[in-house]
């Protein structure tokens, strides 16, 4: 059962529209990247998906149920949202206690809790840091703590808001393998990102937004082939994809590994 946004509108507190007539769906195990300029309505859209925001008009349903009828706490069990700034999310004094906070709050049995925490620790590479205060760790590791805390829950949809900002090569590698792993578990991953190389390496579908509306929604190859969409959403092709385009090489390939074979 999917997340469905049907003709959704939402206004900022000062009354200016943040998103207008947005319709899209996210299916089980899908990997969807939402792209567009700062202020395009990306964060509002994902906050509507997990019920942090309720629409002014239109409907948001998750697994067939309207988010309007469910509390934020209930929704957080289904659609996990990892904040852009990990410090908006992390609040306890050790990595271990941060990861255990939710299961303890929900009074999970110890076995279930330990199993879920161990899985999150392994997926996020946090083995070395369990006793450390998150504030003493660099931002890249704090980002994985924030992701880990969400993964402890049994969400079937995970939203990652700007996960690659500030990550280095090993961090990106870990993030990509984490996303691959979630797909094998049938968990859908939705990301907001400005990193187009990340989009084309790890995601199947792109939703391009501009001015609070969806201007394109489709497979990466299709969306990145459309100059008009790129212009309207003010986004770029990944560097090497733009290079082959500049050279007039006829291909819609986007990933570096594929492009290598297209260059004469």
């Amino acid at each position: 059962m999917p997340i469905v946004l049907d003709e959704v509108a939402f206004d900022y507190p000062d009354g200016t529209p943040a998103v207008e007539s947005v319709s899209l769906h996210v299916k089980d195990g899908e990997r969807v990247a939402i792209v567009g300029q700062n202020g395009a309505g990306k964060t509002t859209t994902v906050k509507l998906m997990n019920g942090l925001l309720k629409p002014r008009s239109g409907a948001v349903t998750v697994d067939g149920e309207s988010t309007a009828n469910r509390t934020t706490a209930m929704m957080a069990q289904t659609v996990g949202y990892v904040f852009q700034n990990p410090d908006d999310q992390i609040f306890t004094s050790s990595v271990q206690s941060e990861l255990e906070y939710m299961p303890k709050y929900l009074r999970w049995e110890e076995v279930r809790r330990d199993e879920r925490v161990a899985r999150a620790v392994a997926l996020c590479g946090l083995e070395q840091h369990l006793e450390t205060n998150p504030n003493d760790l660099p931002i890249a590791i704090r980002k994985f703590i924030a992701i880990g805390a969400i993964l402890v829950g049994e969400c079937r949809y995970i939203i990652l808001d700007e996960p690659t900002a500030g990550l280095d090569v090993p961090g990106l590698r870990l993030l990509n393998s984490l996303i691959d792993h979630l797909q094998t578990e049938g968990i859908a991953v939705v990301t907001i990102t400005h990193d187009m190389r990340f989009v084309t390496e790890s995601f199947d579908r792109v939703v391009a937004m501009a001015g609070g509306t969806v201007v394109a929604d489709g497979p990466c190859e299709e969306v990145f082939a459309d100059d008009d969409v790129l212009k309207r959403a003010r986004i770029r092709r990944p560097e090497v994809a733009q290079l082959v385009r500049d050279l007039g090489i006829p291909t819609t390939a986007l990933r570096l590994d594929d492009i290598v074979h297209k260059i004469p």
Binding site: D168, V169, P170, R197, P238, E239, V240, L243, L256, D257, I259, V260, H261, I263
Partner: peptide, 20 residues
């Protein structure tokens, strides 16, 4: 040192690896 490089530099290395 596992330090990222520009995408086109990675591409050049990938081309070298396939003998071009």
């Amino acid at each position: 040192s596992d330090i990222a490089r520009p995408a086109v530099t990675d591409l050049a290395e990938a081309l070298a690896k396939v003998g071009r």
